[in-house]
């Protein structure tokens, strides 16, 4: 088994899974009906990505697990999503800013992954890039609207920014797994992705009249399976049916 590739696919797939889960929590509760539709649509795209990424992870692992068994039947420490995506929805500003940070990372990542020496991963990236570009457009526009909207919206999204900034560095987490995959041209250099991310974030935050907090303390741990308290509750819901009714088909 290609252990490093498997590990990387879990990180990629779990990001989509957990963020898709968080966005589905909005369903029926959005600030306007159009946003109910938009957030559900993004959740749907993310669940679709999860399916193809984790299905491939199961193949790479070669132990008979498929997308569903990986998505629903691991223990908390085996989930490798970043901490950002498991953070609670908060108000619409928090949700949108979390989405923006994530989309601004995913667009350059998928763009570069299209050139992966791993054909399957390149194909997944190519397919996911289109929808992710649309997600980024949507989240950027909202960050700008809220930042440059009313005093209240500005204060709210600035406070979301102050709270979420500490989770952004983990998007560019890089360890020996990444180093090996990078050496084999399977994944791009995290620093190259970060440069693109910074450009987008800088441009959008400027237009939104928002400022980056001076507290630069960084949180990480998700990529190693060390999560925040929130993940346990997500898994309790996500896994409920599979745990309560084991070995059944739905």
């Amino acid at each position: 088994m290609d252990k490093n590739l498997f590990e990387y696919l879990l990180r990629l797939g779990d990001d989509s899974l957990i963020l898709g889960h968080r966005l589905s929590e909005w369903c029926g509760h959005g600030p306007i009906l159009e946003e109910d539709i938009a957030l559900t649509n993004i959740a749907l795209d993310l669940i679709g990505q999860t399916n193809s990424i984790l299905e491939y992870a199961g193949k790479v692992e070669g132990a008979g697990r498929n997308a569903d068994s990986l998505a629903f039947l691991r223990f908390d420490k085996d989930y490798k999503n970043c901490l950002l995506v498991e953070q609670p929805n908060g108000d619409f500003g928090v949700t949108i800013l979390r989405q923006f940070f994530f989309d601004a990372y995913r667009v350059p990542l998928f763009t570069m992954l299209q050139n992966s020496s791993d054909e399957q991963l390149a194909a997944i990236a190519e397919k996911s890039l289109k929808e992710t570009r649309y997600h980024l457009k949507h989240s950027s526009e909202w960050v700008i609207r809220l930042g440059d909207g009313t005093d209240e919206s500005h204060a709210r999204i600035q406070s979301a920014l102050d709270d979420l900034w500490r989770y952004t560095d983990e998007l560019f987490f890089s360890d020996e797994t990444d180093a090996d995959l990078k050496a084999r041209n399977i994944i791009p250099d995290a620093a190259a992705v970060k440069t693109e991310w910074q450009k987008t974030v800088q441009a959008v935050l400027t237009e939104a009249t928002l400022s980056v907090p001076t507290n630069n303390w960084k949180f990480e741990g998700g990529r190693k399976g060390l999560h925040s308290e929130h993940l346990g509750y997500i898994l309790a819901e996500l896994q409920f049916m599979q745990r309560a009714y084991p070995n059944m088909e739905w």
């Binding site: 700008i144 909207g149 009313t150 209240e152």
Partner: peptide, 13 residues
């Protein structure tokens, strides 16, 4: 109610 500030912001923008 929770969304009113969002709608106001969109209009103001």
């Amino acid at each position: 109610e929770d969304g009113s500030w969002v709608r106001e912001a969109a209009n103001a923008y």
